[in-house]
């Protein structure tokens, strides 16, 4: 594998994580629990889709088949998407949405902080720009995890259930294979070993303030990075790809 191929894979992963989570959150536009939160979640969705645009644009330039960002976003089949399983999980209730977001934001912030000093200037630039947005996303999701966890008896119970249900997908945030190994060696991306302790500290601090506890089981679900997705992914893609599939090459 060449550096270019590895970098294509890496930017595609990051782009897919952003794209699919952005698509998920966009489903809540007009359906947020209160007006203020509806706007907040939609802002975050747009930030993520904006980040996906930058990342997939770069991936397109590295792609051996020279696909552009729109072709990458809308015209791949399910097993060609390499996002982690966490981001494709359904919105569920508000606690599920927030907990999923929190686990992701804590990871993304730690990743982007390190990526902003990457030897690859393009990736460093994207990371630096995205970091400002993602730091706010983390603040927002952390505040809510604490409020729901340390809120009423019912809100505590419900978000604890969200944590029990979603934590099994967090492990995949730290997936690594030969793509990462090559890029780590060249100083282009940070290693999971470097990011994990930062993520773990954020998660532990917030969960402690929220009076929540990690599930006792040690379940670890993964597969998304290798194109094996959960049953929810097909429905999401059908929704997301409908326009480009029905009216090929249409522009908005």
């Amino acid at each position: 594998m060449t550096t270019k191929e590895a970098l294509y894979n890496y930017t595609l992963r990051m782009g897919d994580d952003s794209l699919i989570l952005g698509q998920r959150l966009s489903e809540l536009c007009g359906h947020g629990p209160i007006l203020e939160e509806d706007i907040a979640l939609t802002n975050i969705s747009l930030d993520l889709i904006g980040q996906a645009t930058l990342l997939l644009d770069y991936a397109g330039e590295l792609d051996k088949d020279s696909r552009n960002k729109d072709q990458l976003a809308f015209l791949r089949i399910e097993k060609q998407y390499v996002n982690i399983l966490l981001v494709e999980q359904p919105n569920g209730h508000f606690g599920d949405t927030i907990l999923r977001q929190f686990l992701f934001d804590a990871y993304r912030t730690a990743l982007l902080e390190r990526l902003s000093t990457s030897k690859d200037k393009r990736l460093a630039g994207i990371a630096e720009k995205s970091l400002k947005e993602t730091k706010y996303h983390l603040k927002h999701s952390s505040e809510w995890v604490i409020r729901l966890g340390d809120g009423t008896e019912e809100s505590h119970l419900r978000i604890q259930n969200s944590l029990d249900k979603l934590f099994r997908y967090a492990h995949e945030l730290f997936y690594e294979n030969e793509v990462d190994n090559l890029l780590i060696k060249e100083g282009i991306v940070p290693s999971a070993q470097g990011i994990y302790p930062v993520w773990e500290k954020t998660v532990n601090d917030v969960l402690e303030a929220a009076t929540l506890s990690l599930p006792k089981n040690n379940w670890k679900f993964q597969g998304g990075r290798e194109g094996r997705h959960s049953e929810h992914m097909g429905y999401l893609l059908a929704d997301m790809q409908y326009m480009q599939r029905t009216y090929p090459n249409m522009e908005w």
Partner: peptide, 11 residues
């Protein structure tokens, strides 16, 4: 107050 600031930022 904290949430009010965050919401104001978004809205």
């Amino acid at each position: 107050a904290t949430m009010a600031i965050d919401n104001a930022r978004d809205v």
